[in-house]
């Protein structure tokens, strides 16, 4: 399916992928009574955070993420990905790690779970990281910084 005006967009794959993410978060909510927030669960699994679900369950969720991606990669002819280089990834990773802990969540916990619940904190957090992300890309493009390989 091609979106008029956006030949590179993949709306159908995006929608189906989004439904899978919604189902994943539903299993976490209705099955275990918790928010499927990846940053919080990753911090819990690694012992960085002492709060949240049992560590064994947190590890199972974290292990599932690459498993799910591997299944999709196996069923399709690999998955396209162009990454930034190591130095950029280290800077970005540090910011993402610090920011998600201070901000109590990321795109999954705030963006998917919190916004769909109309949580005031999540709406503010999501608005903030969206604006920051858009501004960052705009500034980098204006400076001619092309970081992806």
């Amino acid at each position: 399916m091609i979106l008029p005006g956006f030949p590179d967009a993949a709306p159908l794959a995006g929608l189906v992928g989004g439904v899978l993410i919604g189902l994943a978060a539903s299993v976490m909510l209705l099955g275990l009574g918790r928010i499927a927030g990846v940053s919080g669960i990753a911090a819990r699994a690694t012992g960085i955070s002492g709060e949240g679900m049992p560590r064994s369950g947190a590890w199972m969720f974290v292990l599932g993420l690459p498993m799910g991606a591997a299944i999709v990669a196996g069923l399709s002819n690999g998955i396209e990905a162009s990454f930034a280089g190591p130095v950029v990834l280290i800077v970005a990773g540090l910011l993402v790690g610090i920011g998600t802990r201070l901000g109590s969540g990321c795109t999954s916990g705030h963006g998917v779970c919190g916004v769909s619940r109309l949580s005031q904190r999540s709406l503010v957090a999501t608005g903030t990281f969206m604006i920051a992300g858009i501004a960052t890309v705009a500034v980098m493009n204006a400076l001619g910084l092309d970081v992806l390989r």
């Binding site: 993420l65 998600t100 992806l148």
Partner: peptide
Amino acid sequence: LVGGSALFGIGWGIAGLCPGPGIAALV
């Protein structure tokens, strides 16, 4: 909440990765 989310957004914009996709992309 706002400051942390802003830092996260900057990191997200720089590399195009947030926590879930970063971990999933290990494969």
